[in-house]
Computed example of a mutant assay.
Amino acid sequence: MKTIAIIPARGGSKRLPGKNIKRLGEKPLIAHSIEYAKANPDIIDAVVVSTDDPEIKKVALSYGVIVIDRPEVLSGDLEPTVTALKHVLQTLEIVPENVVLLQATNPLRPETLLKDSFEKYRRSGTDSLFSVTPIIRKLGKITDQKFVPFNYQIGQRSQDMEPLYFENGLLYISKAELILKEEKIISEQAIPWIVEHPFADLDIDTEADFEYADYLYHKYKIQN
């Protein structure tokens, strides 16, 4: 296996119980990421789900993927995603060269995102790539009860501002070695892959997020 997709999906969500298997459209949430990975067989050699939850495991197995049981010690609210990825790599008999991280809570992705970004990753020779989206907002912080602009000057027009970018969570590509040796998903040399699409604004954590996902799914997936 040269490249695998890993989908971390623990149970125990407090704000939206059972969210990883809650149905979005006609299938469980996690199935959208599984099927996205499987739709790219020229890139993805195997799909692995890491979970601590029996129901999530059951659903994942029904979609024909490898399931790695995540230990309780790696399943806490504050546990970083990279430890789950490292556990998967340490559990597999054969360590792949590349890991594509697909988060179950980002179920909708532009169709060619993986193909296009992986080609850039492959040609660049870098150790990591991650998707970002531009955001033009007048940001600042409050210091001594005063608002201090961060990325603009008072009176500056929004269209004249230099955009900032946020990590949208749609996709990460990393060398397995980076995860195993440095416990990092993205390094200082990581390539940012710009995505300007409504899917980039979605990260499901609450019922309102899920309702927005349902709206996007029916607007873009069903209609198209």
Rank of each mutant, 00 (worst) to 15 (best):
L89K: 13
D144Q: 11
I179W: 05
V148F: 08
P149Y: 06
E177H: 08
S117H: 09
A176L: 07
L89M: 14
S128D: 06
I135G: 04
A84Q: 06
G125I: 10
K138L: 08
I135M: 04
G169D: 04
I154T: 15
K175Q: 06
K181Y: 12
K138W: 10
G140C: 07
Q90S: 02
Y121R: 08
L101F: 02
G140A: 06
D127H: 10
S158H: 03
S128T: 03
R137N: 09
V95C: 07
T133H: 15
T133Y: 07
K141A: 10
V148K: 13
T143Q: 12
Y121Q: 10
S128G: 02
N98W: 07
A176N: 11
L101W: 00
V88R: 03
E162R: 12
A84H: 11
N106E: 05
M161N: 01
I142P: 12
I154W: 01
K181G: 07
F118L: 07
D116Y: 12
T126I: 15
E111D: 08
S174I: 01
G155P: 12
T112G: 04
R122Y: 14
P110E: 01
N98V: 08
K146W: 07
L129C: 05
P163C: 01
T143Y: 11
G155D: 04
T143I: 15
V88C: 12
F118G: 08
V95P: 00
P134N: 00
L171P: 04
N151D: 15
K138G: 13
P110Y: 00
L108A: 03
K115W: 02
T91I: 15
D160P: 06
R122N: 12
I179M: 05
S124C: 09
S117Y: 04
I142A: 11
T126M: 14
Y152G: 05
E177G: 10
D116Q: 12
T126C: 15
G125D: 09
R123M: 10
Q145T: 14
P96G: 02
Y121N: 07
I173R: 02
Q153G: 15
A84R: 02
T133P: 15
T112N: 11
L180Y: 12
L101K: 02
L92T: 00
A104R: 01
E182M: 13
K115G: 03
S131L: 12
S117T: 08
E93L: 11
I173P: 12
E182A: 14
P149V: 03
E162D: 10
Q153L: 15
V132C: 08
L113W: 01
Q90P: 00
Q153E: 15
H87F: 10
P107W: 06
D160F: 04
E167V: 08
L102E: 07
P149K: 06
K141M: 09
P134Q: 00
K115V: 04
Q90K: 04
L85P: 01
L85N: 06
P107G: 05
T133F: 15
L180K: 04
P134W: 00
S158I: 13
I179E: 10
G155K: 07
R122H: 08
L108F: 03
I154P: 02
P110W: 01
Q145S: 14
P163Y: 00
F118A: 09
V100M: 05
F166I: 14
P96S: 04
N98T: 08
N98L: 03
T91N: 15
S117I: 05
V99A: 09
M161F: 07
T105S: 14
L164N: 02
I135Q: 05
D144S: 10
F166P: 15
